[in-house]
Design a binder for these strands. Sequence first.
DNA 1: ATATTATTTGATAATAATTATTATTTAGTA
DNA 2: TACTAAATAATAATTATTATCAAATAATAT
Lengths: 147, 147
Amino acid sequence: MQKLTNIKSQLKEAGLKATHQRLVIMNAVKEMSDHPSAEKVFSSIKANNPSISLGTVYKTLETLVNNGLLAKVATREGQMRYDPRLDNHGHIYLTNTKELVDYYDEELDTLIIDFFKRKRVNNLKIKNISVRINGEKLDSNKEVLIK
Amino acid sequence: MQKLTNIKSQLKEAGLKATHQRLVIMNAVKEMSDHPSAEKVFSSIKANNPSISLGTVYKTLETLVNNGLLAKVATREGQMRYDPRLDNHGHIYLTNTKELVDYYDEELDTLIIDFFKRKRVNNLKIKNISVRINGEKLDSNKEVLIK
DNA sequence: ATATTATTTGATAATAATTATTATTTAGTA
DNA sequence: TACTAAATAATAATTATTATCAAATAATAT
């Protein structure tokens, strides 16, 4: 698997030991691509890795976030979810299905970046700016799409 | 206090009983204006209202959110915070001080609304769109300002 | 004003999500 | 291959929030 080798070097670069647990957990978040919670990650890896504990999943996710390999997203359901995308993108949060969908539009990104470039920002070092769209999914069997 | 009368009619309008607890809690969130958590609201009213329980604070805040009198904001610290502003505004989240600051700019609002007006939105009923800025406060004694 | 009734509240217990602790194991290096 | 600092598994503890239910209260009708 090329993916795992890739993750391995990401970990190394961050100065983290490339443990089996970290590889498996990082890989799971990337594979799942629906911004899973720690519990979701835990269940998804349980079958093939029954010895990895829930505590390790929590700690590892936190470590990955602290080292910039994952992003952490808070939802109003009260548990944290993890996002493998690190670029400046937005989210659509579907209040009825609790799905969290990535949203990115180049034009919007440019629009917003340009806007803030024109502004004077005092006493703040901006790390990221993102757009959050909250809404209801109409047909739960179809995908949500903005284009 | 004109404010309390105001809150009272808001509650009535929403079909909620205007109890002392609701008036006090709603008033506290408005007064605090730093998007307090349930615990923060509880401590802030404790001195003058020692009989209002923490459970009531939680339940009341939830009721106010469900009836559209308050908004609920999730932060990465893992507890919910409450926002008395109901208009479509954004937030600046200061990762170091954990402050949550309102942000609104008419021009940006128009820019974003116009952008989405031009888009085709499939299978989604948008409830609100907001901008979230994460960053670090440089001097913790001064205010953050974007202008 | 008083009685009625459905809601709300206070006190408390319970749950869910997350973090801490610590003995044991392991990755990276010598 | 041995060494050492860091990571993990198992478990306990903590924190934020929700549920339960008897007692209290706001709104309404009398």
